[in-house]
Simulated assay, not measured.
Amino acid sequence: MPAETDSPHLSAPATPGTPGAPLFSSLRVDSLSNDRNILPNCGKCLPVHSLISAHSCITDFPRPNVSLTRKLGAEFVGTFILIFGATAAPIVNQKYNGAETLIGNAACAGLAVMIVILSTGHISGAHLNPSLTIAFAVLRHFPWVQVPAYVAAQVAGSICASFALKGIFHPFLSGGVTVPSVSTAQAFFLEFVITFNLLFVVTAVATDTRAVGELAGIAVGATVMLNILIAGSSTGGSMNPVRTLGPAVAAGNYKQIWIYLVAPTTGAIAGAGAYTAVKLKDEGDAVTPRRSFRRG
C-alpha cells in the first residue's frame, strides 16, 4: 500500500468552458479569463496560479484600471496607424507603377491590424472600426454609451492619417481611396461578405475562451489580408467605414461612399451574430461580460 502523506495533491484546474455573457458590460476577457474567475482573489491583485499561497500577492499584478480617455486615445492612435498603413500601400502602388502589387497592399493592411491589436488591445480593445464597435454593441458585447466616443475617435484618427498622407504623397492620394470597379450590387455584397468573415473571426478570438485569444492579432490580421486579396481589385477591400471615409474626405472623392458605410456595418452585425449563434456554450455562459481584445 502506498504511504499516505499530509501534503495535498496539486492539480491543474479543468479546461474552462465558454462563457456566453456579453463581449467588447464592461471588460473584454481573453482566453485566460475563466482561469482568473475560478481562482481566489485577494481583492487587490489579479489572481494567478501560485504554489506559494492561494492569496499571495507576490506573483500577482495590479488590476488594470483604464479610463475612457485612455481608451479613446488608444483608439485614435491605433486607427491612425491602421489607416496610414492600409492607405499608404495603394498610394505607393499608384505612384511607383505597381511596386506594391495587390499582395503588398493586403500585407500592409494585415500587418497594420496585427501590430495595433497587439500593442493597444489591452487598453481599448483595438476596435479600430465603427462597424465592429456597433456590432458588438448590438450583441451586448460593448456598452452603447461608449459607442459615440469610440466612433468619433476612429473617424478623427482616420481623417488625420488621410491628411497626413495627402501632405506626404500629394497628388497621389486618389490611389488610397476605395471606389468600386464592379457594379453597385456586386460591390455591396462583396463588402458585406468580407466584413462578415472578419467579424466572425474577431468575435471568435475576442469572446470565446476556447479560442486562442493570445494570437488574436495574428488571426485578425491574416483575415484582413485574405479579404483584401479577394476584394482588393473590386472594391478596395475596405471592411471598415473609416478606411473609406478618411481618404474620401482628404481626396474629395465620395463616389458610392454609402456602400462602404452600410455594407460593412450590416456584414459586421451578421458575422458577429453568426459566431455568437454557433459557439459552444456551458452553464457558466451568463457570468462574464466580454470586450474585444482586452484582458479583464
Rank of each mutant, 00 (worst) to 15 (best):
G236Y: 04
N197V: 14
L199S: 13
G237H: 04
A251L: 05
F196T: 12
S238E: 00
V242R: 01
G273F: 07
L226W: 13
V220S: 00
V262L: 12
W258I: 13
N240Q: 10
G217L: 06
L245V: 13
Y275E: 01
R210E: 10
E214H: 14
R243M: 08
G271D: 03
P241N: 13
I257D: 02
V205F: 12
L199K: 07
I194N: 01
A222D: 09
A251Y: 06
T203N: 02
P241Q: 09
A216R: 02
N253F: 08
T266A: 14
G237R: 02
A219D: 01
I194P: 05
L215T: 09
T223H: 01
G217E: 00
P247D: 02
A222R: 05
R243P: 06
G236W: 05
A206G: 14
A251V: 11
D208Q: 03
T195H: 05
N197C: 15
G221S: 08
R243S: 07
T223W: 02
A250F: 12
K255W: 11
L190A: 13
A211H: 05
L261K: 05
A216S: 04
S238R: 03
V249T: 14
V224Y: 08
M239W: 08
L198Q: 07
D208V: 13
A206M: 05
I194D: 00
V249C: 11
F192D: 06
V220C: 05
V202D: 03
M239C: 11
A211S: 10
A270M: 09
L198M: 07
F189G: 11
A248E: 05
A270Y: 10
P264V: 10
A251M: 11
E214L: 13
I218Q: 00
F189K: 06
L199I: 15
V224T: 03
G246S: 11
V212P: 04
G271P: 01
A248I: 11
N240S: 11
P264L: 07
T266Q: 04
T195P: 04
L226V: 13
V212I: 14
T203R: 00
K255T: 14
G236M: 04
A222Q: 08
T207I: 14
N253I: 11
W258Y: 15
V201T: 07
T244E: 01
Q256H: 14
V193T: 15
P264A: 11
G246P: 02
I228D: 04
L229Y: 09
Y260G: 07
V201D: 02
A248V: 10
V201N: 02
G213F: 06
V202H: 08
T265P: 01
L190Y: 11
I259P: 01
F200W: 13
I218L: 14
S233P: 02
